[in-house]
Each structure stands twice: as structure tokens, then as C-alpha cells.
Amino acid sequence: MNIVLFGPPGAGKGTQAKELTKHYNIPHISTGDILRANVREGTNLGIKAKEYMDKGELVPDEVLIGIIRDRLQLSDCKDGYMLDGYPRTLPQAEALKEILENINKPLEVVLNIDVPDKELIDRLSGRRTCSCGESYHLMFNPPLDEGTCGACGGKLYQRDDDREDVVRQRLEIYAAKTMPLIDYYNNRGILVNIDGTGSVEDVFKQIRDVLDPYRK
């Protein structure tokens, strides 16, 4: 099965991606991961990408799609793949469509994990972290002593990107960038919205119900 996975910050996309990889034995292809791998391995496309990354510039679409094309032709993708973090724009979606048709691996399903903004804000802004690496949540996993890490006794803090105002801004940016893609794949008839408000198990059951008919 050939999948693209969408989901806003806090929707649990990373958790579901791990479950998908394990259950269906298909690779989780993150554009960030494969970019870094190509740079590290010194591939031709990686060398080109590094030129832009070293200057703090975005890697051009033609380089990125080339890296994705090469990745999708590796042997672990013979039974399918799950793309995460790509496409991010309509031109990228069109380029991806052409590449996938050329290598005979067209997209079958685009999963969009949907969670209301209010719940996402509660999930993200309630997180607290300790310098020792332990993490808590004020609603779902509160520390025994407020503001104190139960593992080391250190002081808990809120990451800057978990502040409510920052979370709202992140969600606005995500919606603005992703909505055109949601419409694009919906018009192609391959978008499926997944209710991400339940437990990890409940959400994954919805995903399995969608994907099992595509299983090879």
C-alpha cells in the first residue's frame, strides 16, 4: 500500500506512523531523514542538497523529488511506503504524482489525522519537561509534586514551542499550508479523514479499517 500521512502538531502522527510501519511492514519515509542520509552518504543528490542547506536555503523541489524518487525504488518499498513530511505544497504534490506514475507506485490513500484545535492546544500546551529527559503532561500524566520531576527532583519547564500562543501560531501555519493539499487529494478521491481524538488504539483501528483492503 502506498500512503501519505498528514496530521497537525499534537495529532499523534509520529505514534501512528510507528504503528503503521510495524503492522504493515512498510517503510516510514520522512523527507528530513532521507535528506540527512543522502548528505551523510555523499550521494550526488545529497551533495547538491548540502550546497543549499549549508547556505540556510530550502532544498529546491527538483533535488528533493529526486531524492524521494531514489528512496522509493529501494527494495524495502516493494510492498508499499508511507510518506511523511512530503508533499508540503501543490507543486510538490504534482511533481510527486508524476514521479510515482513513472515508477509505477501511485498513491492509493492519503490519511489525514484530524483533531480539533482546542484539543491540540490542550495536548501541546500541557506538556512539561525536565532537563533529565523525563516528560509529563498536566492533564494526562501529571507529576506527583506540581512543577517537580518525579525522577530526579529537578524543576519542570515548558518548552517555548509548547506555549499556547506559539501553539496557536503553529496550527495556523499548518492549516494554511496543508488545506490546499487536503482539497487537492480530496478532489482526487484518495483522502480519508481519521478522527484523532480517541486513544492511540482507537485511532489505529480506524486506520486499519481504511488500509486493510489495500493490503498486498
Results as ranks from 00 to 15, higher is better:
residue 200 V to I: 15
residue 185 Y to H: 09
residue 65 I to K: 09
residue 155 K to I: 14
residue 50 K to S: 07
residue 1 M to D: 04
residue 132 C to H: 01
residue 117 D to A: 03
residue 142 P to Q: 09
residue 148 T to E: 04
residue 74 L to N: 14
residue 156 L to K: 06
residue 99 I to C: 11
residue 209 D to H: 10
residue 170 R to H: 09
residue 194 I to P: 12
residue 138 L to Y: 13
residue 55 K to A: 08
residue 95 A to C: 05
residue 37 A to M: 11
residue 61 D to N: 15
residue 26 I to G: 03
residue 70 D to K: 05
residue 128 R to F: 03
residue 114 D to G: 06
residue 46 G to N: 05
residue 16 Q to S: 05
residue 31 T to W: 06
residue 18 K to W: 01
residue 94 E to H: 10
residue 155 K to S: 13
residue 67 I to F: 10
residue 140 F to N: 13
residue 210 V to R: 06
residue 149 C to W: 05
residue 21 T to I: 07
residue 123 R to T: 00
residue 56 G to S: 03
residue 146 E to S: 09
residue 92 Q to P: 07
residue 73 Q to M: 15
residue 201 E to N: 07
residue 57 E to G: 02
residue 38 N to F: 08
residue 13 K to E: 04
residue 216 K to G: 15
residue 122 D to I: 12
residue 171 L to M: 00
residue 209 D to E: 14
residue 161 D to Y: 11
residue 35 L to I: 15
residue 7 G to M: 08
residue 86 Y to W: 12
residue 43 T to E: 07
residue 92 Q to M: 09
residue 136 Y to K: 03
residue 123 R to Y: 02
residue 34 I to Q: 14
residue 45 L to N: 03
residue 207 I to N: 04
residue 80 G to R: 08
residue 166 V to C: 02
residue 17 A to T: 12
residue 182 I to W: 00
residue 187 N to S: 11
residue 109 V to H: 10
residue 163 R to K: 15
residue 65 I to T: 06
residue 54 D to N: 08
residue 86 Y to T: 11
residue 34 I to N: 14
residue 162 D to K: 01
residue 79 D to R: 14
residue 15 T to F: 09
